[in-house]
């Protein structure tokens, strides 16, 4: 991903990850499931997106995780810049929205 003078250009992979996060898949594992990308691609890409301010991460409250007898997870959300970049990417990659819809349908 490259940022130049207010314009952010995303690779197709990064756009897919943003699309997945925008569609509500907020965990790395669920992004992998939705995009079909391996963990070795998804996590480094998410770190780069976070470094560039397109997404931000937060740890789930331990009390919620403890209540569910499961480990607390780190979840990711789009920032305002991330949302704007996703919209621009959807124009650049029109199939992106269709991909998300297809993945949703497959899950159901």
């Amino acid at each position: 991903m490259v940022r130049m003078a207010g314009e952010t250009k995303l690779s197709h992979t990064a756009a897919m990850i943003l699309q997945a996060l925008g569609a509500g898949h907020v965990y790395g594992l669920s992004v992998m499931e939705m995009t079909g990308l391996p963990s070795g691609t998804v996590y480094p890409a998410m770190r780069r997106l976070e470094r560039d301010g397109l997404i931000r991460s937060q740890w789930e409250s331990p009390s919620i995780a403890d209540a569910g007898k499961r480990p607390a997870r780190k979840y990711y959300r789009l920032t305002r810049t991330g949302k704007a970049t996703l919209e621009a990417s959807q124009k650049r990659y029109p199939l992106l929205a269709k991909l998300a819809a297809a993945a949703e349908a497959a899950e159901r």
Binding site: Y27, G28, L29, M32, E33, P38, S39, G40, T41, V42, Y43, P44, R47, R70, P71, R73
Partner: peptide, 23 residues
């Protein structure tokens, strides 16, 4: 995430762990 990957059938947990090295 490994805990969830092991619970999930959709992800191969071994391949998931190999990705950790790349990350």
């Amino acid at each position: 995430e490994l805990w969830y990957a092991q619970e999930s059938c959709a992800v191969d947990a071994d391949r998931f762990c190999l990705g950790a090295f790349q990350d």
